[in-house]
Every structure is written in structure tokens, then in C-alpha cells.
Nucleic acid binder design. Structure first.
Lengths: 134, 134
DNA sequence: TTGCGTGCAAAGGTTTTGCATGGCA
DNA sequence: TGCCATGCAAAACCTTTGCACGCAA
């Protein structure tokens, strides 16, 4: 999988992402957390390692908000995540995993009728959750 | 709607966005086009006016790709666009607008069964189009 | 030893802000 | 006149790249 060397920095970064697998975190948040934890890691390293993790499929990358930058989520031991859709509340930031027959049918419908193969590891539906309907 | 003054710059910008209503264009593209057309408009003005247009609902803003920046699309006389989904091919970059009964049902389904109101102005489905299925 | 990994600094790109000037009403 | 709009320059962001040094194997 990861052809590279095993280093302390990679270990630390991966560990933190794993522990946040239910959330979307930004590169800046990773750096901030690691620094506040006393384990300093350079920004460059975080970005480069995240890129690699995305490439090999351990991590998913989202572009929700250009102000806060890209978000990342660990998905490796989260296999069921590949099959369903994600809803992200643009107000409170909460991430919902939804998986039901109707939604599963979307993939098939789009592929069959529109010739498009949806990649659920990259797709997130944005909107407002029940708590945030203004 | 637009409480501000009517100026030449606003007129030019709005005109161009209207003429590109089938596409998603970036702020940079607007500036580039207007400059090449001999009608120079400042970058600042474009951003400020776009913000206003988004606010009053004439224009939709997307954050598809952090590399090229945010995309905008005129939707005022384009009501059906509010109702449909967008598919973006991660390989060739092409953007497809899909609109059919099945897809329309997604909004309702998610709202009814999951209490989530999808915002199509922010949502894009990623995958591979028929030309790029490797 | 070999070559990838790291991190600092600098660059690259988009978007925002400060400020003085210009234009609409 | 009063107030908004404009645009330049600079700042503020996030992200990438160049380069020298460090470390894994």
C-alpha cells in the first residue's frame, strides 16, 4: 500500500485522523492539534502525507468551504462508508451517513440512464439538517 | 432586489454571466473575458458584485475544485436549474446537469425520511462520465 | 549508502480589505 | 450633496514547490 518509509510523523498524523474518523477535519486542524499536543509536525508534511493517503484510498478529501480549506476523513476501516451517501450540514457542520434502498438506487439509476458512475468516496450532499432548518 | 446604483461595470458583468448560464464560470474567467473584450473591470468589483448577486439569488456559487476556485452560474431565468443535480467527471472535468423524475425524488426522500434539506447549490456528485470509464 | 521524508521559506493562486477616487441619484 | 461603487495595492488565506538536511532501510 504505502510504498514509503515508516516515520514518526506519518504515524502521528495517521493516528489522529483515525481517531477523528466520524468527522471531517482540515489540514490546519491536524497541524494545530498535533502542535498543541506537543508533537510538532510541519504543514508541508501533513499535506504531502494526506495526498498520499487519498491516493491509496485510506482517506477521503472534501471541498466544502473555500474559507476553511479542504476537509479529510479516514475511511480505511470504515468499509460501509463506500456504499452510502454522506450528508453534511452546512450550518452546524454535522456529518450524517445515510444508507437505504432508495439512496442505493441512485448509483444504478445514474449509471444506467445517464452513463455516469458515481464515486461515493468523493461525493457529499450538502444542505441543512433537521436541527438547522432556519 | 439590487438596492445599489446601476453602473456600467455591473451591467457588463451581469450580461456576461447571463450569456454563460449553461456553464459554471470562475471569477478569473469573467475578468479575463471582459479584459480580452476590451471592457476592463477590476477583480475586486467582480468579486463584490458576485457576492451581491449570490445574496439576492440571481447567481449560484459552487466550490467544486479548490485549484480553479469557486464557480458561478446565473440562475435567475433558469429556474429548472435549482431543481437538479450536477455530475462532475473527476477525470475530464466535464460538468453534467441532470434533471429527471428519479433524481427529483431524492430531495423529497431525504427530507421526508432523513430530515435533511439538500441544498443543490452546494451539492455536486463526483464520478466518471461515459467517456472516461477506464 | 541510497533515496525518500521532513521542514523551512518562498512562491502560487484565489479572495478579501483599506483607502482614495470616481460616479449615481 | 450624500452615499455607494470602483480599482489599485496589499493583505490574508490555503496549498504547493525548491532546497538542504535528516532519517529509514
Amino acid at each position: 500500500m504505502d510504498k514509503g518509509y515508516k516515520t514518526k510523523q506519518k504515524q502521528i498524523i495517521l493516528e489522529y485522523i483515525k481517531s477523528s474518523k466520524d468527522k471531517h477535519i482540515t489540514a490546519a486542524e491536524i497541524v494545530a492539534h498535533l502542535n498543541s499536543a506537543g508533537t510538532s509536525v510541519g504543514v508541508t508534511t501533513v499535506y504531502r502525507y494526506l495526498d498520499k493517503l487519498v491516493e491509496i484510498g485510506y482517506v477521503r478529501k472534501y471541498n466544502l468551504d473555500e474559507k476553511t480549506g479542504a476537509c479529510y476523513q479516514y475511511i480505511k476501516d470504515n468499509e460501509e462508508c463506500v456504499e452510502h451517501f454522506h450528508l453534511k450540514c452546512v450550518k452546524c457542520g454535522e456529518l450524517y451517513h445515510i444508507s437505504c434502498d432508495f439512496m442505493q438506487g441512485i448509483d444504478e439509476h445514474v449509471l444506467e440512464h445517464h452513463g455516469f458512475r458515481i464515486d461515493n468516496t468523493k461525493t457529499v450532499l450538502y444542505g441543512k439538517c433537521k436541527h438547522c432548518h432556519s
